[in-house]
């Protein structure tokens, strides 16, 4: 295969450099030795991925077609797990709740940080701007679990700060917050109020700062006020950053269930159930490992479709590409 054809099919940036190096090195023996060294370089990666990523992923795919408790012989049930999911009330509640949570997260994660970024950049002096940026980024490095636990105690129906405040204000019977099935989900959304997400803030500040001075000055000369300028010039120019934050938040919200796990375990009833929590309960509380694998597959497929839509129609390139899981640094940070 010619070099052109190959990089045409699979455009890797380092391709040409590496092929040049290969051509130059000449001898077959030298080439083989280099290739051997390269394999040594990637060996740890491949070994770890094979054992801890590909084997579990394939196992999940395989077992999603089985009735399996994780210990005894699995029985093949075809699409039975997926059919069961479609009529499972818990899963339906989980799907509805995760849609609400994702919609809320997407709205709030763009609006609040963008407004705060705009406010920060209106301050005179780089020092003050930097100080406020640092201040709002600090919550990113506090353990998320600590944040959830503090909010859990703020929401405590009897001794929590929130209800103490309401009772001082004369409210006779304040709500039970996380304990009330009608408002528990909204109480979960309320966590982190006023929702100044440090990661999104950094992304938007950098985006706004990269807008060239001339454009802003030209607008000022044409008589555009601050609101006009924000709406007509800055907003369209940070649309790439907005898409990035939207996608990261959506993907993160779909799979995260640490907050639910710590705050409500999906309850009361199924009022705060989310797919990740349902997967956890199916596997580790009800020993339905096959069903849990099917839930995982369904979540994977939903995210695959969303990723496809994003790449095909929305596309925002970034180093902080969405990756599944609690271990996704960018995504995890986007929502600390």
């Amino acid at each position: 295969m010619s070099e052109g054809a190959r990089s045409g099919a699979l455009p890797l940036a380092g391709d040409r450099a590496a092929s040049a190096a290969a051509r130059r090195s000449g001898g077959t023996l030298a080439k083989a030795r280099r290739a051997f060294l390269a394999y040594l370089f990637i060996l740890p990666t491949i070994a770890l991925l094979a054992v801890f990523m590909y084997y579990p992923a394939v196992s999940a795919l395989y077992h999603s077609f089985f009735d399996w408790d994780g210990f005894t012989q699995a029985t093949f049930v075809g699409l039975g797990n997926f059919a069961a999911m479609a009529v499972d009330d818990t899963m339906r509640a989980a799907a509805v709740n995760v849609l609400k949570l994702a919609a809320f997260a997407m709205i709030i994660s763009v609006t609040v940080p963008l407004i705060v970024a705009r406010l920060i950049l209106s301050l005179p002096g780089a020092r003050a701007q930097y100080a406020f940026r640092v201040l709002f980024v600090i919550p990113l490095v506090l353990p998320q679990v600590v944040i959830y636990l503090i909010w859990k105690s703020l929401y405590d129906p009897n001794f929590g700060l929130l209800n103490q405040l309401l009772m001082t204000l004369g409210v006779q019977s304040p709500p039970a917050w996380l304990g009330d099935p009608n408002i528990a989900l909204y109480a979960v959304m309320g966590i982190g109020f006023p929702w100044v997400d440090g990661f999104a803030l950094l992304i938007f500040t950098a985006g706004l700062q990269s807008i060239s001075r001339e454009i802003i000055d030209a607008a000022a000369i044409d008589g555009a006020g601050p609101v006009e300028r924000f709406r007509r010039i800055e907003l369209p120019l940070v649309i790439g950053q907005i898409k990035l934050i939207l996608v990261l938040n959506m993907i993160w919200t779909i799979q995260n269930f640490t907050s639910i796990f710590i705050l409500t375990q999906g309850g009361p009833g199924t009022s705060t159930m989310v797919p990740g929590m349902a997967l956890y309960q199916a596997s580790f509380q009800n020993d339905r490992m096959g069903y849990a694998c099917a839930i995982g597959m369904a979540m994977f497929l939903v995210m695959l479709v969303l990723t496809y839509i994003n790449l095909r129609y929305i596309r925002s390139e970034s180093d902080f590409a969405p990756r599944g899981g609690a271990t996704a640094p960018g995504a995890a940070l986007a929502k600390a």
Partner: peptide, 29 residues
Amino acid sequence: ARMSFPGREILYYLVIFLLMVPAVLTLVP
């Protein structure tokens, strides 16, 4: 990025494909 060896592209794509695999999928296995 900088070495040439047979299977480079396919192995690289196998690595970055995992960006799309959510952690919950592999949790149980």
